[in-house]
Simulated assay, not measured.
Amino acid sequence: MNFATTDLCDDNAELLDDGTLAVLPPVYQHYGQHKKFSGRATTLKVFEDNALVRSTLETQGNGNVLVVDGGGSLRRALVGGQLGVLAQNNGWAGIVVHGCIRDVDEINACAVGVRALGAHPQRSARLGAGTRDERIHISGVAVSPGDWIYADADGILVSKKQLA
């Protein structure tokens, strides 16, 4: 994985201008062992309910990035240590959560990249509410299934196409 988000922005200024490439605001915290990750987006829209997050991470990730629109809720965690292990073991490149995680020490021990707004000790509901593989909006940026996600220490990019 040889990229830097700064270089991708510099080399693709026209894509930033036309909206093909977008930068998420710098509100996401780094978790997990992989500070740098990239892959195609698999999208979820949930609210304080992580049953769909679990069932998705139980499938083979094939190097994809799970992007979870949790509505920006800071009241419950959508990803915990067990889900971090599932992501690692099932080949997910990373997880971006527009919401919270928990079990930070456990997630930091996983060989996966995770970005979230913060940590919260309370677990989410498990009712199964939500949708998968639909266009979502996180932090004002649209993310469609199959978009490319690039994350490193400088930020998170969402691209409509794979970048060189």
Rank of each mutant, 00 (worst) to 15 (best):
G39E: 13
R126K: 00
T43C: 08
S139L: 10
G146H: 02
G91D: 07
A151S: 15
G84I: 09
W148V: 06
Q162G: 04
G80T: 05
V65Y: 05
I95D: 03
V114P: 04
G140Y: 07
P121N: 02
G155N: 02
L44Y: 12
L16I: 06
G71E: 14
D69H: 00
L117N: 05
V27F: 02
T43W: 08
V85G: 00
A109T: 01
S38L: 08
D147P: 01
I156M: 09
I95L: 12
N89L: 03
Y31T: 09
L86T: 07
S159Q: 10
H30I: 07
L157Q: 12
A13W: 10
Y31K: 08
V79W: 13
H137D: 07
D18Y: 04
D103P: 00
A164G: 08
V67D: 02
Q60C: 15
A77I: 09
T43N: 11
D152E: 12
N64L: 09
E14I: 03
P26I: 01
A111S: 08
C9S: 15
L74N: 13
N12L: 07
G63E: 13
A116S: 14
N64F: 06
G146T: 05
C9Q: 15
I136G: 01
G71V: 14
G130A: 11
K161Y: 06
G118W: 03
Q33R: 01
G84P: 06
H30C: 05
D7H: 08
Q29L: 10
D17A: 14
D154T: 01
Q88D: 13
M1G: 15
D69S: 02
A119W: 00
I107S: 03
H98T: 03
L86R: 11
D105H: 03
A164Q: 11
E134H: 01
N108E: 09
V27Y: 04
F3V: 14
N64K: 15
Q162A: 14
Q29M: 14
A142V: 07
G94E: 09
K160R: 13
D18N: 15
D49V: 12
V53S: 11
G118F: 03
Y150T: 06
F47G: 03
A119S: 11
A51E: 14
L117G: 04
A13L: 15
G140K: 09
K36V: 03
G32E: 10
N108A: 11
P26K: 03
N108K: 11
T131R: 05
R54Q: 12
D103L: 00
D103K: 01
R75P: 00
L127F: 00
R102I: 01
P26T: 01
I101D: 07
A13H: 10
L44F: 10
T42W: 08
G155P: 00
H34N: 14
K36I: 00
D7S: 10
